[in-house]
Write a protein that binds this DNA or RNA. Sequence first.
DNA 1: GGCCCCTGTGTGACCGGTCACAATCCTGGC
DNA 2: GCCAGGATTGTGACCGGTCACACAGGGGCC
Lengths: 351, 351
Amino acid sequence: MSVTGHTRSGGGRPASIRDVATAAGVSHQTVSRVINGHPSVRPATRERVEAAIARLGFRRSATAHALASGRSRTVTVLTSNTVHYGYAAAIKGIEEAARAASFAVGIHVLESDDERLVTEALRRATDPGGGLILIAYDSPGVRALELAPADALLVAAVETPAEPPPAGRPWVWTDDRAAAREATRHLLELGHRTVHYLAIPSTTRTSGGAQRAAGWRDALTHAGVPVPEPIEGGWEPADGYAAGRRLARDPDVTAVLCGNDDLALGVLRALREAGRAVPDEVSVVGFDDAPHSAYLAPALTTVRLDFAGVGRACFALLHGLVEQGEPIAPHPVAAAPRLIVRESTGPAPAR
Amino acid sequence: MSVTGHTRSGGGRPASIRDVATAAGVSHQTVSRVINGHPSVRPATRERVEAAIARLGFRRSATAHALASGRSRTVTVLTSNTVHYGYAAAIKGIEEAARAASFAVGIHVLESDDERLVTEALRRATDPGGGLILIAYDSPGVRALELAPADALLVAAVETPAEPPPAGRPWVWTDDRAAAREATRHLLELGHRTVHYLAIPSTTRTSGGAQRAAGWRDALTHAGVPVPEPIEGGWEPADGYAAGRRLARDPDVTAVLCGNDDLALGVLRALREAGRAVPDEVSVVGFDDAPHSAYLAPALTTVRLDFAGVGRACFALLHGLVEQGEPIAPHPVAAAPRLIVRESTGPAPAR
DNA sequence: GGCCCCTGTGTGACCGGTCACAATCCTGGC
DNA sequence: GCCAGGATTGTGACCGGTCACACAGGGGCC
């Protein structure tokens, strides 16, 4: 890698509205009116001011603007991860919506769920006047949700809750339970005698537990087939690979539902190495529909989740909060989860 | 997807240092000294102030701090993309380094290279006192680099330049040329008669062109083998797939170097559909080493690039710039590119 | 005992905007 | 010709911190 140095150019401090005012022969308030597009400024005056602005290269200080107006038009995203697909896509949705509303977006990563670290992160990310969006899909995020001060202006993207949360919680989620149910039913309809579930770590402590698991269990129970013990996975392909090696050894396993596409990717590889053909011997379903999943060998059957939509909804909710300071109407902008059937699922093998 | 509403709690405006001062019976300046850890404050006074801070739930306004001190301790990342692996990993590196230095990081996405849009984005992202990091791997980024005001505090992650850039440009890059050369040589050593190159769009307008292509060409020329016309790809798997279908039809094609892993993914799929075995009939090499590449079928041979290191280096450079306002020493923190040989490359087929 | 310096603290200006309100000008209606 | 009222512009305070400097008190030194 290479890096080249730099020499700072440019002179004194940037021009302020008072500098512009002097240059244009008006008061600073008139300059303020011009930059804010206030209607009652005589065209001739406006032109003079605009000329001065251009001449001096004036740019309004967002900092001063935020301080004086009390509105920072800023939203900070608190998340444990920015690279994994679901997180990255949610952030993308937030950024899009924020940009459209002329909000700046900040990112702050939570490295662990350590209480002191999370508290410190919350302190730093919470500037009075700015909003907070929490991605609470995992334990650092959930911890931050617990530790956040009650008066914080915050919205959270959360794992599907077991039951409707207390009213007044600005939370956004997709219906994972229904989605998992649909995916499991798809496998059962293909003739599999049961479906194994490889779980992502769940953050839900309350009874009811993870809703992806619950939806899977719903479908099995409804079909009256045996419910195997769910397997504890992680988030990464390596976790899926490790679990997949164990699953591959069990000849009774013919269908696996994975908590996300990365796990499914690892499972696919483990099955391939073990010589178990997908989908002829084993069917695999993922969760998320990451961009590369359609190109895998075999292309992954998966549940598409609208993370970007969740991100946009989070921002919309927050926007309403900071503008009105009051409850706002829900914005149902994210698409419902949808099962995308591709190549990794097929009829159960004859026995 | 579901969304729940919210009721705003809490009362009046947050406490300021003057509120704390009154509560503690000291002057606002003493409060300022306490929150900044100034040494000459009597312990008893400090305690009283700290008690008042806790009691009132005081948190210092980052906005006011930035305005008064002139330092915003903020860096904004301007990029066309936040989800693709290379971009996301660079952002991760920036965020890590920024967090360690107590800087806040902002994200602003450039949707196109339209001049007005880019100028507007620069205007909004450039707050006096705050730094800018530009990810200039593509045309929106490069356009922003061209349009940025000369006095902006900015650092850019750029495509490998054809020749050392003018001194004083705070640019960071990895040596893609050497990396492409190494990957191509690897294929030639396996006995392939030549190597085809599927390019990502290059942003380099100057003579010399894209350095990944140049490195590939170097190796072919050095080996004295024919140099095929490079194929114009895009960034996405779909682009690789489209190009791969064409390549698959040509029986002379036995080795393909792809500009990134996503293109390689698409090529892999196209070859598979065409019934051309990888690596037995065709070898494929990617660029980037995305997290899923090791798990593909076959696992992808690729060039690992240290994007996170590039991100960290960008921040280090910027940090030096804002702290000292002067040239600073290069920070060689990113690892050099490295070829990771996996399963997608093998000996050239017998003829 | 007088002087100097250091510690601890307070005072008021200032950063670059916005806000509330006052002042002036212009126009139309009667 | 006089006045109401809108349009246009200016004045000064204020947002919540920091900065520069003044000032009181105490100890050491000659």
